[in-house]
């Protein structure tokens, strides 16, 4: 608990610093002007969403391999956080697309893949709500998580072929010198924030499952039926 809190504080510090530099101390982009500043929010969100789903896939393998409830809680936590970050990504993408391409939505491969990925994992959260038996729920969502995770690169690949227009990847190495520092710091902050949320959510999920399966001890064996004193 204390570690999670510490992680959260670290995240807040890094986010404040990263976005502080990003908003006030970094240069505007030659081509995109001020709108480039959404980069410090957008790229880290994308990384965090992808990392969260990767953790979910690892947890899913853990569920199928060992069947321990802890993996299932981690799966619930990371899928949920991943879906939230996917939602943020879509909103940011729209906000950026509006001034840049003067549309709210474009069929850019990354944006489209994010939307598809979000729907797939949202479906898994729905599945979890609809299956009552904890063991069956864990197995079903683990299977669906693996199947959906494997699909992500395939979706990206096919959508890229399908839509011709696309932008090159933004990573800390392809951007201008002055943008690197805020990008790295806000990336660190966002990933730490994601980790904090996943850990908190996992703890809640684990507690919920414990309550669900909280069985009173098996009652003691009753005395054997005495046939002699029967009327």
């Amino acid at each position: 608990m204390r570690w999670t809190l510490l992680l959260g504080i670290l995240a807040l510090v890094a986010l404040t610093a990263g976005h502080g530099i990003g908003l006030f101390a970094s240069p505007p982009d030659a081509a995109m002007g001020q709108t480039v500043r959404i980069l410090y929010l957008h790229v880290p969100s994308a990384w965090t969403a992808m990392l969260a789903f990767t953790v979910a896939a690892v947890a899913a393998v853990g569920v199928l391999w060992s069947g321990r409830p802890g993996w299932d809680a981690l799966l619930e936590g990371s899928v949920e956080v991943g879906v939230v970050f996917c939602g943020m990504l879509l909103v940011q993408g729209s906000i950026w697309a509006r001034p840049t391409w003067s549309v709210w939505w474009t069929w850019d491969p990354r944006l489209t893949t994010t939307a598809v990925m979000m729907m797939a994992f949202l479906g898994i959260l729905l599945l979890r709500r609809l299956v009552d038996e904890p063991g069956r729920r864990a197995t079903a969502s683990a299977v669906a998580t693996i199947v959906s995770y494997v699909d992500v690169p395939v979706v990206y690949f096919s959508v890229e072929w399908w839509s011709a227009a696309h932008q090159g990847f933004s990573s800390a190495r392809t951007v201008d010198e002055g943008m690197r520092l805020p990008l790295w710091v806000s990336l660190l902050g966002t990933v730490l924030l994601g980790a904090t949320l996943v850990l908190w959510r996992t703890r809640i999920a684990a507690e919920a499952r414990r309550r669900e399966e909280d069985a009173p001890d098996l009652p003691p064996a009753p005395p054997p039926l005495d046939l002699e004193i029967a009327p």
Binding site: E133, P134, E213, A215, P216, L218, P219
Partner: peptide, 10 residues
């Protein structure tokens, strides 16, 4: 047991 209920024991 099924969830929090013992259906059978001992």
């Amino acid at each position: 047991r099924f969830g929090g209920r013992w259906a059978l024991g001992r």
